[in-house]
Design a protein around this nucleic acid. Structure first.
Lengths: 238, 238
DNA sequence: AGGTATCTTTGACGGGAGTCAATTCGCCGA
DNA sequence: TCGGCGAATTGACTCCCGTCAAAGATACCT
């Protein structure tokens, strides 16, 4: 809840690394950062609730935030996970509508809030920003389609897709296969895959039965990367 | 497959009513229209397949097109329905990626195709177009979230939401309640709700049993608008 | 009016997944 | 080393919905 005149270094860094206005002048970015209301929140804090009008938008300075729906049957559908440098609800601000999702801090986090008008002012002053905005928005739309795509898959496939991505990014090669650390509680993973721990557990068991992977504690060894990838892309591998 | 030098009147009208470049000069719009490759397709024709690179984008001149996924269990998930004046895959063009969805003609339709470069050229020549583009994209993102939201609901709720919207727009007041004409085959409605005719039929039966509506042929009379609305918004009405 | 094709409804069935409850596993602290 | 507590797994159950099959409705064409 602290607003200050001198800009916190981490806040400034966050603004500088934000894709939205990467075409803006350094001065404009600094000005944006200076006008932000910076808050530090604990994990689990609600940042926005579905239906709220978007009077301001945010920028994640540190930590992670999660945009999600509460599905009809109580399960949460994660829409997007935002990290340091990612904008938060900027789209809603641009569209001038109400929040269509809930947003909460997925970890302890630092968030900088700006009035929506700041974004419009920036567009006014530096029209070239529009270009990067358009690119970002377009990509966002395309990415959202993949959220929907993922939801259309069953849980083992969603898990396979997730593991495949993880393996690509941070897999350690071993004689047996690519090895990855889950690095979080299974329950949290379940949440981010839009399911519950029990079902996730069964999904792991299924992939193991099918010979795609091996697991020991929270270490997963992928035996058949190919099959994992094709499962995760939604093409059945009969 | 006909490309012509003189612009078809309907094509021109389509371009003029497209929100994407509503800030563009009439001359630019005419030029766009003149450069389009216009095709007439029959209902069911595939216009784009998932994974295709987006070399051109389209504009629906007449008829309707539908963007959808093939879900894992065979059900189709309708992403968006595009009508006359709506752009088709313009987002993909802007993002420079591959089609994330399948697109097909939902009715006999006329589509005008343009190379993606035409859009970039337009942005170059008339920067003010960026503004309307941004607004359109932002709205699109927000709307997509509602697609996901809808998918999280069960079929009766999805139907309730749809009927409520329809009632708001085109409901005829009668002594019994708001009356609306479905105006399409139930099978088509099922498709656009992301389900199949059988399940839709059961959803109608359920809403009728619950006393929310009455139906006679393809005329639906809504008896309890309130309950319908709250069901459709995803809040259980216990 | 008759007949046929199409659409719609209904029933039976199966699979995926969420809930609840019980059990097992694993990690810490005493 | 022995509890103890949270996390993970497993089983039983149920609901939702898609598929398949069959039986009404409806509409349209001759």
């Amino acid at each position: 809840m602290s607003a200050r005149n001198e800009v916190r270094a981490d806040v400034l860094a966050g603004f500088q690394s934000c894709r939205l206005w990467r075409a803006a002048s350094p001065e404009a970015v600094t000005r944006l950062a200076a006008g932000a209301r910076v808050v530090d929140v604990a994990r689990g804090t609600t940042l926005a609730t579905e239906g709220d009008p978007a009077l301001e938008f945010g920028l994640v300075v540190a930590g992670k935030a999660r945009a999600f729906y509460l599905g009809a049957d109580g399960r949460q559908i994660t829409f997007e996970t935002m990290q340091a440098g990612d904008p938060l609800a900027a789209v809603v601000a641009l569209a001038g509508t109400r929040y269509p999702v809930n947003i909460e801090a997925a970890t302890d986090a630092t968030i900088a809030f700006l009035p929506t008008s700041a974004l419009f002012d920036l567009l006014e002053e530096e029209p070239q920003v529009a270009r990067s905005l358009i690119a970002d928005l377009a990509n966002r739309v395309v990415n959202f389609t993949s959220v929907v795509h993922t939801l259309a898959l069953d849980v083992p496939s969603r898990l396979a897709g997730y593991l495949f991505q993880r393996a690509l990014r941070s897999g350690r090669p071993t004689p047996a296969g690519l090895e990855i650390e889950v690095g979080m509680k299974k329950g949290d993973l379940a949440l981010s895959l839009g399911t519950v721990p029990e079902t996730l557990s069964r999904a792991f068991a299924k992939l193991k039965d099918d010979g795609l992977l091996e697991m020991r504690g929270s270490t997963v060894t992928i035996l058949d990367v190919r099959a994992l990838a094709s499962l995760g892309s939604g093409y059945a591998e009969d």
